[in-house]
Write a protein that binds this DNA or RNA. Structure first.
Lengths: 254, 254
DNA sequence: CGCAGAGTTGATACCAGTCAACAAAAGTGG
DNA sequence: CCACTTTTGTTGACTGGTATCAACTCTGCG
């Protein structure tokens, strides 16, 4: 899949203590010998190909995962078999918490491209969390962030119109890219228009039109999945329901 | 408000070990002396009046709460000051987890009617959870259920039309009433039409029309907030996007 | 080069939001 | 206890945003 295996291997061997995601991930807030104990249970370097699944609906909760690089979507299936996208997971974000309630996964985690993840056996994680209060605290924090993302997601879905949702979505992405140290103003979307649509509760055509419109208004530039943010402030305004300004409207009127 | 105060007082004094919500609440899975330790930190018997708040946006996370009776809504405020209802909380359901991420509440918990709650100081809870693995496990389970409810909520919001959302909402309520031992077929809605609308992402008029239509189709009977489920199976069908049957459509056509 | 998947654009229909008036219920004060 | 106000819920008419259906273009890839 990749001819730079030796190099990757070296990078992948890094322990939690050396990982660039440390501050976002479970190790935040613990250190020294405690970190080593966490390190021991983390099975690193699981590579996942595009379209592969970390787990499926109905699978027992065995591990939680942290995307190390690459991106994932979690989807649930409605009675008629349609995918609904519950969330996107970028580097450093925990995947698999959906099984916390009943111990069985309620959604599927699908790699949006080639990716690799840290796999953390859940029983062992909770085990050592009882012994390391700092880890328990951080685990709760990470779960909390997941809850927050869900709430933000709902905020996009409720009583906002299509262009607003799309602006919110793009704005949220830039913030997350910034957090993990990637460029927040020029990036490649890891997901398809259809995925975005199923995430935002819109038809994929509407998403496409929304992107086009943002480009017409000179807020972003889009070429397929390549997106560049040209006017971040305007993006934020649009995300909060402000109509596009006069010049943009004039441009569209032509 | 109620002249049976002495009786209530006696009931409210019950410890976790005697509480009817035990199986739904934190004590599930622990027992004996361990239960007593949990019991010790629970400040019971806080009474909350209709419209009062357990906490506000920006408050530091000090306690989580379990509704003992009564119902709550949690709401977040959008930039323009509009309420969006993130969830409804019936007896036995944990409130306050929204602050898990940053230690600060992101939403407000408002009593929908007079209620009383168990207040559980959060630091002490996590403290003894490190010592009682059964409690830690149950805490994670309860958090997981909260996540599940959020996901179910999203499922209602994404690409479902108004009548479907309303049917799903009612169906979900009956399930929750059943769980806490209240009648799942005849109940009084604790929340207003507006709350339902802000929860489902609809206009309140649309919710009102939806209820009326369900009544016309003889699926439910509504008088203000009193609801009776007349045809549970049909309700489930409607919740899954099946059109109303011929006879109902004929009735509407008149 | 040709193909399949992904994305764009256009025309049309319809669901649900909005505005508005009314009805019923629940408080409020004399 | 009744009149008044306020809140809550219902119903109707109209409009607009978005889904849907359909054709087309672009991109990457074997």
């Amino acid at each position: 899949m990749n001819d730079t295996a030796p190099l990757d291997l070296a990078r992948l061997r890094r322990s939690c203590s050396q990982c660039s995601l440390q501050q976002l991930c479970l190790p935040a807030g613990i250190s020294g010998p405690e970190l080593e104990r966490l390190d021991d249970i983390v099975r690193r370097r699981r590579t996942i190909g595009r379209g592969e699944r970390l787990f499926r609906i109905g699978d027992a909760l065995s591990s939680v995962y942290v995307a190390r690089d690459g991106a994932f979507k979690t989807v649930s299936l409605s009675e008629d078999g349609e995918e609904q996208v519950l969330g996107f997971h970028l580097a450093g974000e925990l995947i698999g918490l959906d099984a916390l309630g009943e111990g069985v996964h309620r959604c599927e985690a699908i790699a949006l491209g080639d990716a690799n993840v840290c796999e953390v056996p859940f029983d062992q994680l909770t085990d050592i969390a009882t012994q390391l209060p700092g880890l328990q605290h951080q685990l709760l924090r990470v779960i909390g962030h997941s809850l927050n993302r869900d709430h933000d997601h709902m905020g996009m879905l409720v009583r906002r119109q299509a262009n607003e949702r799309i602006a919110l979505f793009l704005h949220g992405l830039t913030e997350r890219f910034r957090q993990i140290g990637q460029s927040p103003i020029a990036f490649k979307l890891p997901m398809s228009r259809e995925d975005v649509a199923r995430y935002l509760g819109l038809a994929l055509e509407t998403v496409s039109r929304g992107f086009t419109r943002l480009q017409e208004d000179a807020v972003i530039s889009v070429h397929g999945r390549r997106v560049e943010i040209l006017n971040g402030e305007e993006l934020v305004r649009l995300a909060h329901g402000v109509e596009a300004d006069q010049t943009s409207r004039a441009r569209r009127a032509r």
